[in-house]
């Protein structure tokens, strides 16, 4: 067998693997820094007050900005949270608190987990058929529905996990005091897990706020202010970046695209890092 190999060759293999490991970590961290620095380098030149305050304009008209897309993205993302979070938390409560129908629970848990891995482009197709075709026009609302479908399983599974961490004695104490099941769940269990629930929602928000593919099928893009949230194509950041970067040969548009990319990246990374700090604070607090 292989045990005949000399100690020197074994040691050298080990050192080689170790070197490769360090190389692997370097590749991962460097790529992250490379992407972020590229976006900052190209993007910071576009960031002027007028760029942040003016709506986007077609090529050739000076003074275009991203304000409408930024507002549109905020509207679409918060719309998605409004649609997804209440049922997702109730669903998570069911999976965690009511364990009387085990088969149904495991089927639902399984579909939520599988849904978390579904390509977002499929969700775009689905919402296109369900909302855009049936209402007859693209709209920011359809975009919200698509993002809500992406958020739903993430928040639901997170809620289940977080409620599972609440000690059973707390529930028993509340029930023994004569509280109803509903009140115990909402006022005691959810309250005890509030920080975990919040981080779940925030992580889901940061995940969908840069999501592009489903918006190409639902919200599309327009140069106007997002007043057409329910009635027509709505401006949003990810589609603006896509349009400016791929469908335009002009350096000026590319510049604006980088500026928009920088804003989206700052938004997403801020939420993400803030959430991580929140989790850390929670771990220290207990």
């Amino acid at each position: 067998m292989k045990n005949k190999r000399s100690i020197t060759s074994r040691k050298w293999t080990d050192r080689l693997v170790r070197a490769f490991s360090i190389f692997a970590v370097a590749v991962a961290v460097m790529s992250m820094l490379w992407v972020i620095c590229t976006v900052i380098y190209y993007g910071h030149r576009a960031l002027r007050p007028s760029f942040l305050l003016n709506p986007s304009r077609p090529y050739g008209i000076p003074g275009g900005g991203i304000a409408n897309a930024l507002l549109g993205t905020i509207a679409i993302t918060f719309g998605a949270a409004l649609i997804a979070v209440p049922p997702a938390i109730l669903g998570g409560i069911y999976l965690s608190e009511y364990k009387d129908r085990r088969v149904i629970c495991s089927i639902l848990r399984f579909s939520a987990t599988v849904m978390m891995g579904m390509p977002s482009v499929i969700i775009g197709l689905f919402v296109y058929m369900i909302v855009v075709v049936s209402s007859g026009h693209f709209s920011g609302f359809a975009g919200s529905v698509a993002l809500a479908i992406i958020m739903f399983p993430v928040v639901m599974r997170n809620t289940e996990d977080m409620l599972g961490l609440v000690p059973y004695t707390l529930r028993e104490a509340a029930l023994a005091m004569g509280m109803t099941r509903t009140r115990t769940t909402l006022r005691i269990v959810c309250f005890a897990a509030r920080r975990g629930l919040l981080t779940g929602v925030l992580l889901a928000l940061s995940r969908v706020s840069g999501e592009t593919a489903p918006l190409l099928f639902t919200a599309l893009f327009s140069d106007s202010w997002p007043t057409t949230y329910f009635s027509g194509p709505t401006a949003n950041m990810p589609v603006l970046i896509t349009e400016y970067a791929t469908n335009s040969p002009f350096a000026e548009m590319h510049q604006a695209g980088w500026g928009a990319a920088l804003v989206v990246m700052l938004l997403v990374l801020t939420i993400n890092i803030a959430t991580r700090l929140l989790i850390r604070g929670q771990a220290d607090g207990h």
Partner: peptide, 12 residues
């Protein structure tokens, strides 16, 4: 953090 960067930014 690599997973947090939106895919459209990777594309660009």
């Amino acid at each position: 953090l690599l997973a947090a960067i939106p895919s459209v930014i990777y594309g660009m």
